[in-house]
Every structure is written in C-alpha cells, then in structure tokens.
Amino acid sequence: MNFKRALRVWQRNATVYKKLYRSSIALNFFEPMFYFLALGIGLGGFIKEINGLTYLQFIAPGIVMSSAMYAACYECTYGTYVRMEYQKTFDAILATPILFEEVIMGELLWGTTKSLIYGTIILIVMLFFGLVNNFEVLLLLFYLIFCGLIFSSLSLIATALVPGIESFNYFYTLFLTPLFLFSGIFFPLEEMPSLLKSVFQFNPLFHLVNISRTLFYVGINGFVLYESIYLILFLLFIMPLPFLLLKRRYLL
C-alpha cells in the first residue's frame, strides 16, 4: 500500500465534490438541524433537564457526531457503489499505476473527510447557539476523524456485501437507525433494561457521543481516554474487512 497513490484517489473524489458540493451540502446539513430543532426545542419544552443539562444542551453533542456518521455512510455506500458499479471509476483508476487496496484506502479516507466536513459545520452551528463554553471541544475534530474511519469502514463492508443498490435500505433501516436511536443522543441509556444496555455497549456511536458530550461540557478527562480505547480496538478489528470483502466482490 502506497499512501501517496491512495491520496490520488481521495483527490479525485475531492475534485468532483468541489464541483458539486452546492447541490448536496444542504441535504447533509438540514437533516441533523431538523432533529436538533424539533426535538431540542419541541420536546425540550417538556423536559426539565438531564444530568444538569437542558435538553438542547443534552442532544447537541450527539447531533454533531451523528451528522458525521451519516456523512461517511452516505459517501461510502451510495457514493462508492456508484463509482464502482455504474460509473466504472474503479476500472478506470485500476488501469493506472494505482492498486486496488489504494483505491479502497482512498475511498475510506474520503468518507472520513466527509465526516470531518459535516461534523465541523454542525459544531460551528452549535457554537453559534452558545452551547459550548469549553475550548477543549476542538479536540472533537480528532474524534470526528475517528467517527469517519469507523463508519466509512462499516459502510464499505455493506457496499461489498449488497447484491444491488436498493439493498442499502436494509443497512440504513436495520443497522444505522438503531445505532442512531440507541446511542444516548436523545436519552441516557442508563434507564434502559440491562440486556439492551449491554447490547448497545457495542455501539461505536454510543462511545463517540459520550466523548462528544464530555468534551462539550467538561473537557478532556480519564473517561474520554477510556472510551477512546474501545474505539481504537473496534477500528483495528473492522478496518481490514472492507479491503478483503471488496477485493472478493470486485476482482473475482
């Protein structure tokens, strides 16, 4: 694996995005904002506070993370699939010095970049709402990259496994939606039945949301580092899979 050649693939996606972002940026921006406003202000009117935070304050850090998650997922499911199967972009690139795993690495890094872009935009909005009073929240940028790597990898695994583009509905409805709803963004998972609680301990978004909330209102501490260990292990475990599975799908 040559990193520079992987970056050429990343650069191709960035060039296309630079031309087209005006037509797609709104989609990724408004959806999390609708959740934030509808639930934060609407539902927030009925909820006094959670763990000493207003409801708006409670959900804001999670909305930053989940928008980063969805940005990586859209990119590495639909985006990658179209490049691979319909536009034959992979075929074109593989006729040049670039190798297959470098194409996949380029896709993974591009999905991660999308997480960073959209997570940052939402974070800036939260700053405007005056929800953050903590300089250490800037460390969140590092965790947006983490979020991007994890969810780009999971999405590329889905891309390797789907029989057709329609099947991504299963990935979104049966996999991502539960991860999103049971991540502790909207309510603390402590109140859940203990079986469910232990299941959702595996949810990487749960740990990312924990980190985000801590960085928002407390700052870096031992808890953030402890949660990071889980994320590192999770990432190390899943990151080889997209390379193996996509190779099997594409080259055989």
Binding site: R8, R12, V16, L20, K88, T89, I93
Partner: peptide, 20 residues
C-alpha cells in the same frame, strides 16, 4: 468509464494525477 461529473479537460487532468 469517463468521469461524468467532470469536463473534458478535467477528465484528462484527474487521470494524469494517477500517474503522478
């Protein structure tokens, strides 16, 4: 397998980057 979102010239320039 041209890049449908890019112009004629951009297609060539993006491709040339793969060759460094």
């Amino acid at each position: 397998n041209l890049d449908p979102d890019l112009s004629v010239l951009e297609n060539l320039l993006v491709y040339s980057r793969y060759f460094d």
